[in-house]
Design a protein around this nucleic acid. Structure first.
Lengths: 141, 141
DNA sequence: ATTTCTGCAAATGCTTTGCATTGCA
DNA sequence: TGCAATGCAAAGCATTTGCAGAAAT
């Protein structure tokens, strides 16, 4: 796997401590944080970092393909450094977002379903997102 | 099928012209409009209707189960009066949202997948959303 | 007659923007 | 050194809220 620095340099995007820090956080967690959560986690080690920079950074990393945006839950987009397509579950009570690992969305991303949908709709498809909604174990009483 | 009036009355929610109008628009279209689009479509016949009322109305109708919210695209949530679970395609260029009718998300909503995910994650699941992203026929050149 | 809803305007809150300064390359 | 990125504060917008008047039950 290619190092993040190389990927950025290839695209003529500067490697900064802030960008590395945001990416590092997303690599370490499975919590799918939103911008605010990333910002809070960054604060202790980067007291000067601004929220605007986090917004700009996730945007850059997303466009470069180093992470994916999840349109799930309240409180803005959630971010995931695992870019391989996979389903997510959202807890409607506590707001937690978890991965669904067992069955891969590759089952959709593959020929059968994608081509099927592509043929039906006429769309040139590029990606899929599968979201499950419910209550997590802690919130189900 | 139960009339919308009955459903609202059952829940002690008042039947108003505004609510009927918003619901009627969503029944007539397959465009999955957002609040602003609904508002614009309503304006000619209801010049006094306020945007805030549209926001409140879709919220009520959604909670009562008369429509579903789609978290797709820019420009806020999109609304669909067809509440049977089915996948959607989003055009990343023009913002259009279409239904995917051929294969039903029922394929997921059914025992096999839902129970599978439920067992894996421990979540008590209530719904699913499947979104495809790409370019619509008009935007694919 | 009550109670809820509507419409307006103000308030909120998330996200973006502009720009001077800083810091990669 | 030159160009891009950061940080701050201000601006922008979509959404929500509060409340007086209107409408539904």
């Amino acid at each position: 796997m290619q190092a993040i620095e190389e990927i950025l340099r290839e695209k003529r995007i500067k490697v900064t401590p802030q960008r590395m820090a945001v990416y590092a956080i997303l690599r370490e967690t499975r919590k799918h944080p939103n911008v605010e959560m990333i910002y809070q986690k960054l604060k202790p080690s980067y007291p000067a970092m601004s929220l605007a920079t986090v917004y700009k950074t996730v945007d850059v990393l997303n466009k470069v393909g180093l992470l994916q945006e999840l349109k799930v839950g309240e409180g803005g987009l959630r971010y995931d450094a695992i870019i391989k397509p996979h389903p997510h579950v959202y807890c409607e009570k506590c707001g937690k977002v978890d991965d669904v690992e067992q069955f891969s969305i590759e089952d959709f991303h593959n020929d059968s379903v994608m081509q099927h949908v592509q043929k039906e709709t006429g769309y040139a498809l590029s990606s899929v997102q599968l979201y499950f909604y419910g209550k997590c174990p802690n919130c189900s009483d």
